[in-house]
Design a protein around this nucleic acid. Structure first.
Length: 208
DNA sequence: TTAATGATCCGCT
DNA sequence: GCGGATCATTAAG
């Protein structure tokens, strides 16, 4: 018999749940990105609550960031990034995956934080059901997998994250350590260390 | 290392 | 409109 236990960071939480408000998202993107590590992504579905603690995010900031979708200017696809912070930006990529971003900064300045990895907290059974194919123990280590496990697609693009359907919450968890690296899966903008992560089995990739 | 798989965007007609 | 390049991924080989 094989052991399927995954050892993760063990949150010892005080009993608080505080939804992140608009002001949290309207700040500079790098600040928001760093502060998002350790926060909880919560999705309220008809079947129940799905939640996970964020361990890996990346910042994409403005039209001058060559890796940011806004580098080509405003299009129907990326226009949500041009709005005020605190909304979801979900796009379809590689013909089969979705990626979830959190829009940041004031209206008019296009920026967002990509959610790349998280440790499941509630609704693991729902995640497995959503995944809908043989899957291992890690359903939320990677932006495409995370969206699949949560059941997020373009129908959830543009949601107000200060609402009650999809939101982020401070549950009092303090990351043990936050590290920074270059961003993953891009060819331009590699000079910026705009990836933030807390060491965890649910990090998408480990760089050499 | 590479195939899978399709929306998006650009540069043309 | 149409063709082709691109793509913030993933799992299999």
């Amino acid at each position: 018999m094989s052991c399927s236990l995954i050892v993760t960071n063990k949150p010892n939480l005080p009993n608080i749940k505080m939804k992140l408000d608009r002001a949290f998202y309207l700040r500079p993107t790098l600040e928001v990105a760093g502060d998002l590590v350790g926060k909880y992504l919560v999705y309220s579905t008809p079947s129940g609550i799905i939640s996970a603690r964020l361990v890996e995010v990346e910042a994409y900031i403005g039209e001058n960031d060559p890796a940011c979708h806004a580098a080509v200017g405003k299009t129907p696809r990326n226009e949500i990034m041009y709005g005020p912070g605190g909304f979801s930006y979900i796009y379809f990529i590689y013909g089969m995956y979705h990626c979830l971003n959190v829009v940041t900064e004031q209206e008019g300045f296009p920026a967002a934080v990509l959610i790349r990895g998280a440790e499941p907290e509630e609704g693991l059974a729902l995640m497995r059901r959503n995944f809908d194919k043989p899957a291992g123990n890690r359903l939320t280590n990677g932006p495409g997998k995370l969206c699949r496990a949560f059941g997020l697609n373009r129908d959830e693009n543009g949601l107000d994250l200060t609402g009650s359907k999809l939101y982020l919450e401070d549950r009092g968890y303090k990351p043990v350590k936050i590290e920074r690296s270059r961003r993953i899966g891009i060819k331009k903008g590699l000079g910026k260390k705009w990836r933030f992560y807390e060491p965890s089995p649910f990090i998408s990739v480990k760089l050499k």
